[in-house]
Design a protein around this nucleic acid. Structure first.
Lengths: 166, 166
DNA sequence: TCAAATTCCATGATATCCCATATTTATAGC
DNA sequence: GCTATAAATATGGGATATCATGGAATTTGA
């Protein structure tokens, strides 16, 4: 059974742009990097475009290659493919965890999401996101409202009951 | 026949947030974790959002992966998928039973349901819930009242009599 | 040569592991 | 059914490892 990114947590970002990746996420990154072995530090990919509200998206090596394959199946020269390729390929970078489980966010990325002293890490299954805390809170409210409009349900968790109880 | 969570019981929560999971529930968690083998300890998932009255909900690995699969069938990059991914993934965590059949409830989760010294575990078939005892009692009263209003019967168990007696 | 980036080390807080023990439940033999 | 014995359970305490974070030392590279 594949381990996924779950949970959310708040971390300090220091003057050098260093920030701890939540420990449970590190395990998933290790699982998701075919070249990882004990003693080394896993690599992964951060994508910084392609979202309506500014946040960073982190993919394991395995899941980014799944995304790559998906895109390569789209019709050549299609608008959708063009857009996806732009974000996934040009607006992304490789990142490596350091000895202490931290990463360094380049100034460009910090600026892109308006990060200052703190960051929210949000588990999203196959990927995780990094948010400026205030922006994140606003986004949650948006999603909640959108969901009600989309489905007529007040609460996304109705899904769990529906499926599991069967 | 699938083993289900049944029964309710009261357990102490110590200063470290440790609390015993009722022994019968452990068997169900073991059955529900494909990676479990004798000698190891089962993993499962606690979801802490999406309830009207605050309680924690625990799902086996199998149940939660049913939910994950459903979400992963939605179109990648779609709004609905994004919303569901966020709420199901961010408001949940992996938990592993320890050698003694206990779990550790992180301070965040304890605070969420107002836990202090004791917790009620309530079997709910495919999932089980963890409640602050006073809150649980109030909730039961609510349910009882709602049931009477809905059906005119004082006691939900009239249902069982109907079926078993035939 | 100087600023920025990277590596290395330090530390308090927290979480995890390991062992102890009282209590309850199950088992076996009579 | 009753009792002795063994196994499983619920809970506590202390030792140990991990985590999040800060700062200093070293390297890089313009």
């Amino acid at each position: 059974m594949i381990r996924r990114f779950r949970g959310e947590s708040l971390h300090k970002v220091d003057l050098k742009g260093r920030v701890s990746v939540p420990a449970p996420f590190r395990r998933v990154l290790e699982d998701g990097d075919p070249e990882f072995k004990t003693g080394s530090n896993p690599n992964f990919v951060i994508v910084y475009g392609g979202v309506k509200t500014p946040c960073l998206e982190a993919y394991t090596m395995k899941s980014i290659s799944t995304v790559d394959q998906l895109i390569s199946k789209l019709p050549r020269f299609s608008r959708e493919r063009e857009i996806l390729e732009r974000f996934i390929n040009t607006q992304s970078i490789y990142i490596q965890l350091d000895e202490n489980g931290r990463i360094v966010l380049p100034p460009k990325l910090k600026a892109f999401i308006g990060l200052e002293g703190e960051a929210i890490f949000a588990g999203m299954g196959e990927k995780f996101q990094i948010w400026e805390p205030k922006t994140y809170e606003t986004e949650l409210q948006f999603l909640q409202d959108d969901f009600s409009k989309l489905t007529g349900k007040a609460n996304p968790f109705y899904l769990i009951d529906n499926i599991v109880d069967k």
